[in-house]
Each structure stands twice: as C-alpha cells, then as structure tokens.
C-alpha cells in the first residue's frame, strides 16, 4: 500500500505541475478549450441532426440516445485527458529517445507515460457529457437509481478500457517501425460504441465486445440506468473487462520494454 500512496502523491504532483504550466498561458488554454468544445459540439450535432427527426431508433427513444451519447463522453473525456502522451509516444519517446529517461527513474514506466502530460481541455468533454446526461435523465421517467449511482464509477472503468486498448496499440510501436503507430485509425472506432448496440448485427456486436471492447466502455454501462435488463450480465461484466484489459496492457508493455531493452528501439 506504500506504493499506492507513493503513486497517488506523485500523480497529484504531476497533475499540479502540469496544470500550473498550462494555465500560465491563459489565452492559449482558452483557445484549446474552445477548439475542444467545438469538436464535441460538432459530433453531438450529428446525433441531434439524425435522431431528433425520429421518435425512436431501433426501439431507443431520442432522449435515451442523448443519454447514451452524453454518457459516452465521460470515459472518452477522462481518456483524452490522460492519453496526450500515448498519441505521441512513438514520436516523442521512442524516436526522440526520451524513453531512456523514463527507464532511468524508479517509477513504473507506464505510470510515467500516462501521467507526465495531460490534455486538460478535455475535461470539457466530461462536463458536456454530464450536462447532456443530466438533461436526458430529466426527460426520462423511471430510471434505475442504482444504475444512475453507478454511472460515475462505470465511466472510470470505461476510461480504463479505452486507456488499456490504446495502451496496447501504442505498445505496438515497440515492434512496428512507424512514427505514428496504430492508435489513430482505431481512435475513430470509438464512434461505434456511442450508439445502441442493437442497431448492429452479430459480427459487429462481437467485435465491440471482444477484441475492441468499446461497447463495455460506453454502451453497456448505461443499460442498468435505462432499465434494459437483458444487458445485465454485460453491465456487471464491465469492471472485469476493464481489469482484464488493464492487465493485458501491463503485460504487453512489459514485453515491449523487454524488447526495447534488447534492441534499443
């Protein structure tokens, strides 16, 4: 537990330092928040444009869709706050050689990669998502209180799933000579999880629940609150899936670091 306390303190310190540096340039930070918000507004508009015309989509009401989409912004926002380094890992750490320095500190390399830099402006997504969820919830009668209460925790698990999947993809840079890595293309696939999974056919459902488990990050967590009891096993599996992928991520990073140790790249 000493290690947990050590890492928690370190995380707080990293975050404080980063925020301080970031807020030193207020106008610039404001631009970043604005840009980030514009992006969120644009993708939210797509949902509003499409689904406001229909009372139902495959058995899901407009407000349920907004609820679902709003919730998807929570794990997505948490993920974005922490993933700044992941996205540039190959470039900044492997090509520019900063990874050596990571290995020379007595702190878990993965911890350093995740928490050395933050994309603060993405907290905006969490906020926007929370507002959307709250609005949709006010229009939806009979939501499950337990489901609502668990939403924040499940959003964290969702973020763990995103971080782990992208952690694994980023780790591929240890083996594949490519400055950009595999993460950017898969990034687009997060859009899959933002709509009711019932609109897809079996193949896609299986894909989203196994290899790229994005349905566990954003769709299944809403099903308890929305009273879709048929998804209950999936809802309760969310923490296990998150842990599984977190372990997988850790194991693959270990191998990646070992590979780095033997080839130096």
């Amino acid at each position: 537990m000493r290690s947990l306390r050590f890492h928690a303190r370190l995380l707080a310190l990293y975050f404080a330092q980063y925020a301080k540096a970031r807020l030193a340039y207020r106008a610039d930070f404001a631009t970043a928040v604005l840009a980030s918000f514009l992006g969120t507004a644009a993708s939210f508009s797509v949902v509003l444009l499409l689904f406001s015309r229909f009372p139902h989509l495959a058995g899901w009401s407009f407000h349920e869709i907004v609820f679902l989409y709003g919730f998807s912004l929570l794990p997505y926002g948490f993920f974005n706050v922490l993933s700044g380094n992941l996205y540039e890992f190959a470039d900044r750490y492997l090509v520019e050689g900063r990874f050596d320095r990571i290995l020379l500190r007595p702190v878990s390399p993965l911890f350093q990669i995740f928490f050395e830099s933050f994309r603060l402006e993405s907290l905006q997504e969490v906020l926007t998502g929370a507002v959307a969820v709250a609005w949709a919830a006010s229009k939806l009668p009979g939501l499950s209180p337990l489901g609502l209460a668990l939403l924040p925790l499940w959003a964290v698990f969702g973020a763990v799933i995103y971080l782990s999947v992208f952690g694994i993809l980023t780790a591929s840079s240890f083996w594949i000579e490519d400055r950009v890595g595999l993460a950017p293309p898969v990034f687009n696939l997060m859009a899959f999880g933002r709509y009711p999974i019932t609109i897809y056919d079996l193949k896609v459902k299986v894909l989203l629940s196994t290899v790229i488990p994005f349905a566990f990050a954003s769709f299944y967590p809403t099903t308890l609150a929305l009273g879709r009891t048929s998804f209950a096993p999936f809802f309760w599996a969310v923490p296990a899936v998150a842990l599984l992928f977190a372990f997988l991520n850790r194991a693959i990073w270990r191998r990646g670091i070992a590979k780095y140790g033997s080839t130096g790249s």
Binding site: R9, L10, L13, Y14, Q17, Y18, K20, A21, R105, P106, V107
Partner: peptide
C-alpha cells in the same frame, strides 16, 4: 515547460 524548482520537487518525490 515547468520551472526548474518544480522539476526538483518532482524528483524529490520520485
């Protein structure tokens, strides 16, 4: 991007 002293504080913690 951070002041030298902040780097030292991080290292102190690490």
């Amino acid at each position: 991007d951070i002041a030298v002293v902040e780097s030292f504080r991080l290292l102190r913690e690490i």
